[in-house]
Write a protein that binds this DNA or RNA. Structure first.
Lengths: 261, 261
DNA sequence: CGAGGAGTTGAAAGCCTTCAAGCGCCGTGG
DNA sequence: CCACGGCGCTTGAAGGCTTTCAACTCCTCG
């Protein structure tokens, strides 16, 4: 561990502990203005502080299993989590990709409907469910924000359905890489145009579960995009996008309609 | 037109006109207790009455095109509508199937995000958008109910994603028929066990857009399920399910986990 | 009666999956 | 210290499921 300039080089558990130690105060929270609490006033925030607690997970850990009791709802603070459904014979489909500020759990439902897994080191801001539900009734700001976020998720799910139902394997891969690139740009406030180098936060297998493909097909299509110069890959995970428009052409989406980021 | 016992035998436009004529008063509304207004009190309902109006569409008509201005939000009162996305080259994927009581449109968004089409004769209860948005701010009951409905839709979308990403053509068809059967049972309050005869409300093409298949594959798989005795088909649309458990086995879903209906 | 829409079915092609083998990296334990 | 084993990933070859292209039926409507 020669260079310790970024948190990336530190052991995951330590980083998570640091993050949660840093985050006792909602005012310092990195997702303060995007999460379910975004619209809360100072007094409402104080109420939330009383029922919140942080939990950390290492990459690969399961947060909850589908069907398990779930006594909390939560926001992703840092890291990435996934929601996955599994069929009896083991076929798996990812149905949610949760980034910082995204919300986990459903008020009013006692059990988890999906497997929730940390795909990177993960810190979540959890609220005990019952107090949270009570607070939702008294605090319209929370319900309003949650509605907004849920509508956004529904839009994303519908975009995803188009991908799953109608796109080719190549288009699926191009779409996923574009999504990750955009997300990265938005998190880093990058000026969109440079920052097109990033680390894929998903294994080939996780990508295949996202895209409704096998991991072999994912691997082959990534290789194909690399061969065709659409992307540049260093090692297994580091991706550079020399020409974003070229990549977007490969997604099959409208070239113009890009109102997102 | 010898037997006119049910509305099915009447010209669509007339039925729609009848329905909307019957429905000036929210208290007589068939979706009063399931739609976005479900939790409203008498005074709130009165407010809604002032900003509502009915619109009728014949089977096949387009309600709005993706990208068009949309000055209203609405509830489906009777009939079925679909939300569909289209790619540049014409590939289409249905992303929403709207039944009576389902909500159309997004408060706060000026344009339609999807093509909305009536697949059967359709009556919608429309609210002018601006007044509706204003009312949402003053009336938590509406926002609360809308959140609940949106969360349900998100769950449905995620189930659908599993279907699109991981199920075989045969499983997709069995799943769709099961969904329609359940819906029918729930609308007719049937005692679940008999009423397993119904009309498919979708063309083969609409089914293919729902399932991410071609219409030929839909046709072939329906024929295969018929050959195997899983379903009985009279004419092109009328389906009988002799053994629902058998059909459910064909969906690939958990046999037990059926908490729906 | 002809035209057109909805649906069915056959044959061939194609895309993705399945099955297999192999590479490179990393942590463990002899 | 180094061999071993596992994991993540890549690549090849064969097979299969769905699509594509095409022909044909049935029914409705003008």
């Amino acid at each position: 561990m020669t260079k310790a300039t970024t948190t990336h080089d530190q052991p995951p558990a330590r980083v998570a502990a640091q993050v949660s130690a840093l985050l006792q105060d909602c005012n310092d929270c990195p997702i303060r203005h995007r999460a379910v609490c975004a619209r809360c006033e100072a007094d409402e925030l104080q109420h939330l502080e009383e029922i919140k607690y942080y939990r950390s997970f290492e990459a690969g850990q399961t947060v909850v299993w589908s069907g398990d009791r779930m006594d909390f709802v939560a926001s992703v603070v840092t890291g990435i989590a996934t929601l996955t459904q599994t069929m009896e014979d083991g076929r798996r489909q990812m149905v949610g990709l949760l980034l910082p500020s995204d919300f986990v759990g459903r008020p009013g439902r006692p059990t988890a409907a999906y497997d929730v897994t940390a795909t990177t080191d993960l810190v979540m801001c959890c609220f005990r469910k019952k107090p949270f539900e009570d607070m939702m009734l008294r605090t319209p700001h929370i319900g309003q924000r949650l509605l907004e976020m849920t509508l956004d998720e529904l839009d994303a799910a519908r975009e995803w359905m188009l991908l799953l139902g109608r796109k080719t394997a190549r288009e699926k891969i191009a779409s996923l890489i574009t999504i990750i690139a955009r997300r990265n740009a938005s998190l880093n406030q990058a000026s969109m145009g440079d920052s097109l180098i990033f680390e894929l936060p998903l294994t080939r297998e996780a990508m295949s579960e996202y895209l409704g493909l096998t991991l072999e097909t994912v691997s082959r299509q990534i290789s194909a995009l690399r061969r065709d110069g659409v992307i540049v890959v260093e090692g297994k995970r580091r991706v550079t996008i020399p020409d974003l428009d070229r990549l977007i052409e490969e997604t099959g989406d409208d070239t113009d309609g890009g109102f997102l980021i």
